[in-house]
């Protein structure tokens, strides 16, 4: 993994790439959310990340930490579903851990994201294997020690691997056994976040 400092401009491109991916995949996310959720994940995240892209464009933050805290704040305010506070907490906690540094290393980002993912687990009261975002986020952060591309791959695999799992959190958990056989929408959108990161660092 390179020691090149990642700057605010790169973090802004990351969030913009995530917004573009969410935009492109919104229908699929909502479709995944139909059998086991309330069919709003795609449109909710689309609204959230559109607001993120707008806020970052209107007043571009000058540190990576500020990019993520701004993005997280937008998600908490605009998403309207559980993914808002969850993604918002992920990005804000990660951003706060990065502090005021004008540039951060990949290892610093990995450590900060670890804290962000732990905060998501705490907020949602969930663990890996519960068929949630964590099933993509957790392996992605682990694989980040290798490379951004490896993290994206691990997240995608984690999302796909939620299919046979029984949901233990959120509305899907009310379905019990019937939640098996569907890929988790939250894990799927989490994979997009890491796909976007791999895209802008490639």
């Amino acid at each position: 993994m390179t020691e090149t400092a990642l700057d605010a401009a790169l973090f802004i491109r990351w969030m913009q790439a995530a917004a573009a991916l969410v935009d492109r995949e919104a229908e699929r996310l909502t479709e995944l959310d139909s059998p086991i959720g309330d069919a709003d994940h795609g449109s909710n995240l689309q609204r959230g990340f559109t607001a993120v892209a707008k806020a970052l464009e209107a007043e571009p933050p000058v540190t990576p930490g500020a990019v993520l805290t701004t993005a997280g704040r937008q998600l908490i305010s605009t998403v309207g579903g559980a993914s808002g506070p969850l993604y918002g907490t992920l990005l804000r906690r990660t951003g706060k851990a990065l502090g005021d540094a004008p540039g951060v290393t990949a290892e610093e980002l990995r450590a900060a994201l670890r804290g962000g993912v732990d905060a998501v687990a705490q907020l949602g009261g969930s663990a890996v294997g519960d068929k949630t975002m964590l099933d993509a986020l957790d392996p992605a952060v682990e694989a980040l020690a290798t490379s951004f591309a490896a993290a994206a791959e691990a997240a995608e695999k984690g999302a796909v691997d939620t299919t046979p799992l029984q949901a233990r959190k959120g509305r899907a958990s009310y379905l019990g056994e019937r939640s098996k056989g569907h890929q988790d929408p939250g894990a799927t959108s989490s994979a997009l976040l890491f796909a976007a990161l791999a895209e802008v660092t490639a």
Binding site: R73, I76, G80, A82, P85, T89, L123, G124, G170
Partner: peptide
């Protein structure tokens, strides 16, 4: 329930 709980928790954490 759900997002109502998480949103308030996230706002309090802010």
């Amino acid at each position: 329930l759900g997002s109502a709980v998480l949103t308030v928790k996230a706002l309090l954490a802010e």
